[in-house]
Amino acid sequence: MRRRTRRSLVNIAFFASALFLIIYLNRDPSNSKTFAWTTIRYKTTSTTLPKTHGTCPGLAGSSKPALVVARVAGDGDSNWLEALTDLYHVCIYTADAPVDPLSTHLQVPANRGHEAMAYLTFLIDNYANIPVAGAGFVHGARWAWHNDALDYDNAALLAALNVSAALALSGYHNLRCDWSASMCSPSGAPPQGSLETSVNAMLEPWNARVVSDAALPGALAALFGGDGSGLPKGGGRLLLGRTDAVRAQCCAQFVVARDRVWQHSRDEYVALRQWLLDGSSDSGVNEHSQSGNAAPRDDRVAGRILSYLWHILFMQQGESNAQNSSPGAYDGIDLERLNTLACPRADDCYCRLYGRCHLEGCDSPGRCHGQYLLPPDFRLPDDWTVTHS
């Protein structure tokens, strides 16, 4: 055999082997699309849990939906929320404010996980008093690139929001309708469990979006699997397959019905918040942490993982399993159905949430021209607050 022919055969064999390896690594381990993401089972080894400091005054018996606001001092003046008090029972948490050990009101145990710490603290410390009208969860800045309007004004969006209509579909709704900067579009990003996502995370360790996507499968398994002892039989998989994607709207602003909150026990929210705290090296809350399963130490990554979690927790998935009395006990979550519910058509969403119906220019499921424009570099001009207030 000539040397050139032999070399070509070796190259072909090498290429075929590499191709087979790529296909093998990207295969789905199972054809099942049902996942056991129904109950938070994370187990902390911390000996000290945070005390109650996050109760919202006057919430018990309120006929208005709660509006949980997660802010930091850098968000600026919070006076814009006063105009919304006729519509909502406003509960404002300032994550970087000094803790008052004598107060039980509107404080968080640590500035960790971005908005998630305030959201979870509200759910834990006000669990029994969630209003029958539900609750909304938003960020503390009035003007932000992710607020779904041409002027990016959350005050106007919240004033127009029809909470009851938003909750009628599945008991949960993200406040964004436009699909830009989200995982709703199949072409937006590769599946979180894919080989491409894992490689990209290694090549771009500074990229919080890519790193958090790569960390999501393991985080879901740790949160919903725990030590595995409490998993129901036949409840589905824990780990995302190589071709499975969790589709979701960005940016962790949403409304949720009371019964959707109560489909999980208070202890589950405690465990979820402790997952965040256990991953922090400077929270000062825990003496011992379960570092292997706890949240990533990078706060941007931990917070972004939780932004994928809210709709998994709150969207109604099916009838409760009568064999299991746990509030969150369902037979399993159907990923395809979850993705469909998480990413409604933009025109339907604008009509349902904000009363903007019969829109023109809706040339794709996730886009209605003239309703929202993604600003350059995801940033509003520095003088935006001054010029638009």
Rank of each mutant, 00 (worst) to 15 (best):
F254D: 02
V255W: 06
V256C: 05
V256W: 01
A257D: 03
A257C: 06
R258N: 02
R258Q: 14
D259W: 06
R260Q: 08
V261D: 00
H264N: 11
H264R: 12
S265W: 00
R266L: 06
D267T: 14
E268M: 02
Y269A: 12
Y269E: 15
V270C: 01
A271R: 12
L272V: 10
L272F: 14
W275G: 04
L276V: 03
L277P: 15
L277D: 02
L277R: 03
D278A: 11
D278Q: 07
D278K: 11
D278T: 01
G279E: 05
S280P: 08
S280D: 12
S281H: 09
S281D: 08
S281C: 11
G284E: 15
V285F: 06
H288D: 13
H288V: 05
Q290D: 09
A294P: 15
A294E: 07
A294W: 04
P296K: 07
D299Y: 04
R300F: 04
V301H: 15
V301D: 06
V301Y: 15
A302N: 13
G303V: 01
G303H: 05
I305Q: 11
L306S: 01
L306D: 02
Y308D: 09
L309I: 12
H311C: 02
H311E: 04
H311K: 07
H311Q: 12
I312C: 01
L313E: 03
F314I: 03
F314P: 01
F314H: 03
F314Q: 03
Q317P: 07
S320W: 10
S320M: 07
N321G: 02
A322Y: 00
Q323T: 14
N324C: 07
S325C: 00
S325K: 14
S326W: 06
P327K: 06
P327S: 08
A329Q: 12
Y330N: 03
Y330A: 13
D331P: 02
G332Q: 02
G332H: 01
I333L: 12
D334P: 05
E336D: 12
E336Y: 08
R337V: 14
L338Q: 08
N339L: 12
C343E: 05
P344Y: 13
R345D: 11
R345A: 11
A346H: 09
A346V: 05
D347N: 05
D348W: 12
C349E: 04
R352V: 09
R352W: 11
